[in-house]
Design a protein around this nucleic acid. Structure first.
Lengths: 183, 183
DNA sequence: CTGAAATGGTTGACGTGTCAACTGATGCCG
DNA sequence: CGGCATCAGTTGACACGTCAACCATTTCAG
């Protein structure tokens, strides 16, 4: 999409002048190469989630985020996780997760149980129906992942992509909540 | 984030069995390397837009999408674009754009004019206030782009990223509405 | 052991995106 | 030129995420 920065080559100069006289420090504008990479990245970041959502929505009436919640629970011991832990693993806020889990609970895919050890906490548990739904949905999702991303790239590019995203996540996810498990 | 597929190594087998007996064809599961790249990509795609939004929201009360709309208009001839053209360049649906432009118009950043040539069409025009806002906002946005992405990568990785995103967009944006101008 | 602060989670209001329905204007076929 | 399909755009209802407020429990200082 198009974005942002890449316009205003004219504005660039003016903006920096303004900035220099104000509180902002000078900011180096992006080179053409950097600009193309930047625009490409934000375009992908805009379009990819929408595609994943629409595929999952169509096939299983699930958001990509719903899917991730089910997926995280599916590999947890007892298929159970505390809300806070689940929120970290899905990099969601607690309110968001709470709403989502409530909807999933209504559909019978997840159940909420008070945590025995800590009366404040809630455990989310993947039901058999939730597990079956996930199992039924996974192949289509993987297929989409292949069609849109993996199979479009060379093996070398896949490796590059892993290195690049890994570097970016050190900034985007400093606490490293997401990838801890996968290292 | 986290996602999806990367769970259910157990489910993988089951899912594919199910699939084989159903309408789905077999889907090759992802290799560990592919999985890491995939999870990395969707994590970035989830976190990056949120960061851009929050920076722009803080500094100028703009969505990243708002910013893109202003940016697109800023480089158009007469700083004017028809709604449809603007929608394509921002890869937005027309209803979404219509809502956004309405809000921007209320704030005086954009104005809507009937198109002289075609009575059905509407022209969106960037006002002076909109231009000034954009110019004032651009440096901070570029700085964010550098901090989160560009300056985190080597020059070589930036080049790789450009190639990778370019390949992905052939699938994600087949009509190539976004990048036409940037080639 | 008592009270203040921190933790875990839920709820409700608000903003934004999506989808379907709708209005008007254009183009085109006969 | 009459009528139908298409195009351009808007609107309204609904779904989801965010934020701030809130409640209950736990922790810890004194």
């Amino acid at each position: 999409m198009t974005t942002s920065t890449h316009d205003v080559p004219a504005a660039a100069g003016r903006a920096c002048d303004v900035a220099a006289s104000g509180e902002q420090q000078d900011v180096a504008w992006l080179t053409p190469d950097q600009l193309r990479a930047w625009i490409g990245l934000i375009s992908v970041a805009e379009l990819l989630p929408a595609r994943l959502d629409s595929q999952l929505q169509r096939d299983a009436d699930l958001t990509h985020f719903d899917y991730q919640v089910l997926a995280m629970l599916s590999e947890a011991p007892e298929r159970t996780l505390r809300m806070t832990g689940l929120a970290q693993r899905t990099s969601a806020t607690l309110p968001r997760l709470s709403h989502v889990v409530k909807r999933l609970e209504v559909r019978g895919l997840v159940e909420r149980l008070p945590c025995p050890g800590d009366a404040r906490a809630t455990n989310a548990h993947l039901t058999d129906l939730g597990w079956d739904t996930l199992v039924r949905t996974a192949p289509g999702h993987v297929r989409t992942a292949r069609e849109l991303v993996i199979d479009v790239l060379t093996d070398e590019q896949v490796a590059q992509l892993e290195a690049i995203t890994s570097a970016l996540l050190t900034r985007l996810d400093p606490e490293d909540r997401l990838l801890r498990r996968n290292r």
